[in-house]
Amino acid sequence: MKKILSLLCLLATASSLFSLASPVLSASPFSSGAAAKVASAPAAPKDSRQAQAALRQLLAAHVAGNQAGMEALVSPDMPGYAGVVEAARQARPMQKQLRITLSDLRAQPSEDAALVLVQARWEKRYVRLPAGLQVRKSGEAVFTLKRSEGGWKLAGLSGDNLFAAD
């Protein structure tokens, strides 16, 4: 029940994502008519695995300095798109030998598997230029991935922004 409530809260905070989830949320056992007919097939575990794989590809592109590859895996209609993409663009020249690791991943797909929330702890290590200082940052984030025609894309980020410079 806690997972469902946290999923609903996260969806409600992102207005563009909330509109995608509203048919699923309105299809309750207490509703009648067309809304009850909207329910889709339950999400398969492969949806969560595919969404997590897309998240790892996005992070690998960022680590490799492939800005175009990273941006291709971020949905352009994501709330906070500029905050993620611009933060990554500005931070990358100052962060050399970048390594990002994820741990404690928990994935929660929506009923229709159009969205998957991936909650994770992250650790980021790099050498900050120009001083050459070794930096270790860590945090927690919830990544919202949305299924699109081109595959899974980052559609929301809450918590600590691992793409930020400092």
Rank of each mutant, 00 (worst) to 15 (best):
L7T: 13
L7I: 12
L8A: 13
A12K: 04
A12D: 03
A12P: 01
A12R: 02
A14R: 12
L17A: 10
L20E: 05
S22M: 01
P23Q: 03
V24E: 15
S28Q: 12
S28M: 14
F30D: 11
S31L: 10
G33S: 08
G33L: 07
A35H: 02
A35P: 00
K37E: 11
V38G: 01
A41R: 10
A41S: 09
P42E: 15
K46I: 13
D47E: 10
Q50V: 12
Q52L: 12
A54N: 09
L55F: 11
R56L: 15
H62P: 00
H62E: 10
H62S: 04
H62V: 06
Q67H: 03
Q67L: 12
M70T: 00
E71A: 09
E71N: 06
V74T: 04
V74K: 13
S75L: 15
D77Q: 14
G80Y: 04
V85Q: 04
V85R: 02
A87F: 00
A87M: 05
P93L: 08
M94K: 15
M94G: 00
L98S: 00
L102K: 00
S103G: 10
S110W: 06
L115P: 01
V116A: 02
V116W: 04
V118F: 01
V118M: 03
V118N: 04
R121W: 04
Y126E: 05
R128D: 10
R128V: 15
P130H: 15
Q134H: 14
Q134N: 15
G139Y: 04
E140S: 15
E140P: 01
E140C: 01
E140Q: 12
A141W: 02
V142I: 13
V142S: 06
V142K: 02
L145A: 13
K146R: 08
G151S: 13
A155Y: 01
A155T: 01
A155L: 11
G156K: 10
G156P: 03
L157D: 03
L157E: 02
S158A: 10
G159I: 07
D160R: 05
N161L: 03
L162F: 01
L162A: 03
D166H: 07
